[in-house]
Write a protein that binds this DNA or RNA. Structure first.
Length: 645
RNA sequence: GCUGGCGUAGCUCAAUGGCAGAGCAGCGGUUUUGUAAACCGCCGGUUGGGGGUUCGAUUCCUCUCGCCAGCUCCA
């Protein structure tokens, strides 16, 4: 063991080496003898493990400062923030019990056992107290305690939940953190003092179950966030406002795209003319491209005999999400939750040769799933939706080339809709699964090989595959950096066996094909919701329900305006004339609110010159030009938008 | 499904136990308009629905439907 006088060698992340006395705190070792501690440094990685700055060094080590700039730094900062909030809650409401309080993406929360929900007024009081705790700059000190002593300690303080947590921990000692009078069970690390947290704000409160189980008592959760500077916090709050502004439920109503109505039922969408037109454009594009890609398009019914769903296994594995069956004559019928059995039955309608494969059946198939009321959310989670579904039937050796094609196709389609950043995941075999281990290994390898051949970076989601086969999930990132799950490519070993699918091989014998399920947009409803938020309702010109609005200044130009509108329509543009008895400013305001890409203002001057004055969405003055030039301009925008990838 | 909040005119929101209101939209008129809101008038309600308390309920209680946030779930 090194003694107090011994020197140890530390290596900093920039490569410099330094001798410090054994027993030196990691933070001091970082700043060097007599050096000023850097306030931006929140913690330190000792041999790669994040620790408190006051951690005592006893042997040679590599050290790396942890700042707010890194993901670990943010976690530590927010973890300390949630402790500050918890301290504040305990001080304002001494009867609360602490449970858990982790950092999360963009913030933190803490769950408290309390006899009633927190009100906004409570949050204001708690936040004020938290700011006082920050100002007091209490040092945050780590201490260790034997397990049994810690259980006793928390029980004496009335913290039953904390005692229960320790009872479920295997270790013989636990670590506690103290700041002022507040002591919490915590693995750490933490920032050295409460004053390190600069800008903190509590955001909301809501119920949450103890250990996430709905049979357990409901706790009161408070969400908050913290940043190093008020400016960063303000920017984050502005982003939250922006998210609210773009909410597809709000924009869907304002732009008269869709509605959901009590009389119809939750999770069921009405597509109004403008929304329906955008959907039509999306679907036309989809069909056109699928035919180009060698898919055959099919249609299938909305209900089928329950027996079909017994064969497919949905009755066993998916009943919870199915509407109850309906009795018709002597049999039961089921509203379809999936399209796959139908495509399988089309496959089965003939004998298939190895020469026929791969067979690609695509359908914009509308399915109905019973989702619990609490999970429904605008267009993003509904009970009736249309999947851009396809099923590929292929030989084992065709998995990789088929998946590669699907990947190329997916990225092409997503880019066309304005998405350029993706997160890709490969999910591997879960505990409960059908199919042999070799099959899984082979299919998973084929998925990875396809991704590698396309140079796509991906992460492995271990054990997250569906029971019937491994899958690739693609999340798209929208303009605000939010990730949305849309595309999925799933290998299926199960259905070919259940439906006894076969093809005749070169050897004249029957073989079982592999099935690949894939969706590019996932659900049209969901994808549309994401598109609305991505574009904040200002759709690119090729998707805009009205591409150009002709706005006459006075009644004298009505004839001219109608004439121009007809010319635009003849050029296959979606144009409307606003002939209402209103001033130009009013008409422009309305067109802007509707997010119309082009406004063609026509007054006496334009009529005289047989021209239009073009205003682009957002107040862009594109000047006066002949009608034909305006048509060329808008048409070029339409083509460009569809090819902008 | 669970916990909490909410539900008033087409939309956004007022009215706390005492005559249900405003702005916008719509309709009629005046105005003939130049790049984000002209002016006047009119119309508009079973206050989500049922039941209860009360002389009297948008308001209080209860059941129910729906929405929102979170939890849980998400083949």
């Amino acid at each position: 063991m090194p003694t107090e006088t011994q020197l140890i060698q530390i290596i900093l992340s920039d490569g410099t080496k330094r001798q410090v006395p054994a027993g030196c705190a990691a933070g001091e070792a970082l700043s060097g003898a007599g050096g000023q501690p850097d306030r931006a440094v929140l913690a330190v990685k000792v041999n790669g493990v994040a620790m408190d700055l006051e951690t005592v060094l006893t042997e040679d080590a590599t050290l790396e400062p942890v700042t707010f700039a890194s993901p670990e730094g943010k976690e530590i900062y927010r973890h300390s923030s949630t402790h500050i909030m918890a301290q504040a809650v305990k001080e304002v409401f001494p009867s609360v019990q602490l449970t858990i309080g982790p950092p999360i993406e963009d913030g933190f929360y803490y769950d408290f056992a309390f006899e009633r929900p927190f009100t906004p007024e409570d949050l204001a009081k708690i936040e004020a107290r938290a700011h006082e705790i920050i100002k007091a700059n209490y040092p945050i000190k780590r201490m260790e305690m034997p397990r049994l002593e810690a259980i006793k300690f928390f029980k004496e303080r009335g913290e039953q939940y904390k005692a229960e947590i320790i009872e479920s921990l295997p270790s013989q000692t636990v670590s506690l953190y103290r700041q002022g009078e507040f002591i919490d069970l915590c693995r750490g690390p933490h920032v050295p003092a409460t004053g390190r947290v600069q800008a903190l704000k509590l955001l909301s409160s809501a119920g949450a179950y103890w250990r996430g189980d709905e049979r357990n008592p409901m706790l009161q959760r408070i969400y908050g966030t913290s940043f190093q500077t008020q400016a960063e916090l303000d920017a984050h709050l502005a982003k939250l406002e922006e998210i609210k502004r773009r909410d597809h439920r709000k924009l869907g109503k304002e732009l008269d795209l869709i509605s959901m109505q009590d009389e119809i039922g939750p999770g069921l969408i009405l597509w109004h003319p403008k929304g329906a037109l955008i959907r039509l454009l999306i679907e036309n594009f989809w069909r056109e491209q699928h035919l180009k890609q060698g898919y055959e398009l099919v249609y299938s019914p909305h209900v089928a005999r329950l027996d079909l769903w017994r064969t497919s296994g949905h009755v066993d594995y998916y009943r919870e999400n199915m509407f109850v069956p309906m009795k018709v004559e002597a049999s039961e019928y089921q509203l379809k939750p999936m399209n796959c059995p139908f495509h399988i039955m089309i496959y089965k309608s003939h004998l298939r040769s190895y020469r026929d494969l791969p067979i690609r059946y695509g359908e914009l198939g509308t399915v109905y799933r019973y989702e619990r009321t609490g999970v429904l959310h605008g267009l993003l989670r509904v009970r009736g939706f249309t999947q851009d579904d396809a099923h590929l039937f292929c030989r084992p050796d065709q998995i990789e080339p088929e998946v590669s094609r699907v990947l190329d196709f997916t990225f092409f389609v997503l880019r066309t809709f304005g998405f350029s950043e993706f997160e890709v995941y490969v999910s591997t075999k879960p505990e409960k699964a059908v199919g042999s281990s070799e099959n899984w290994a082979q299919a998973t390898a084929a998925l990875e090989a396809a991704l590698k051949s396309r140079g796509v970076a991906y992460q492995i989601d271990p054990g997250e595959g569906v029971f019937y086969g491994p899958k690739i999930d693609i999340k798209i990132k929208d303009v605000l950096g939010r990730a949305w799950q849309c595309s999925t490519v799933q290998i299926d070993f199960n259905n070919p066996a259940r439906f006894e699918l076969a093809y005749t091989g070169e050897d004249g014998k029957a073989h079982q094909p592999i099935m690949i399920h894939r969706a590019l947009m996932g659900s049209i409803e969901r994808f549309f919701g994401i598109l609305i938020e991505h574009y904040a309702g200002a759709f690119p010109t090729w998707l805009a329900p009205v591409q150009a609005k002709v706005l006459p200044i006075s009644e004298n130009q009505h004839g001219y305006a109608v004439e121009i509108t007809e010319q635009l329509k003849a050029a296959e543009l979606r144009a409307e004339a606003d002939l209402r008895n209103e001033k130009a400013g009013y008409k422009i305001r309305e067109a802007e609110k509707a997010k119309t890409p082009y406004m063609l203002v026509v007054g006496g001057r334009e009529q005289q010159a047989q021209a239009v004055s073009v205003r682009g969405r957002g107040g862009v003055d594109l000047g006066s030009m002949p009608v034909s030039a305006a048509i060329d301009l808008i048409r070029a925008d339409v083509t460009q938008a569809r090819q902008s990838h």
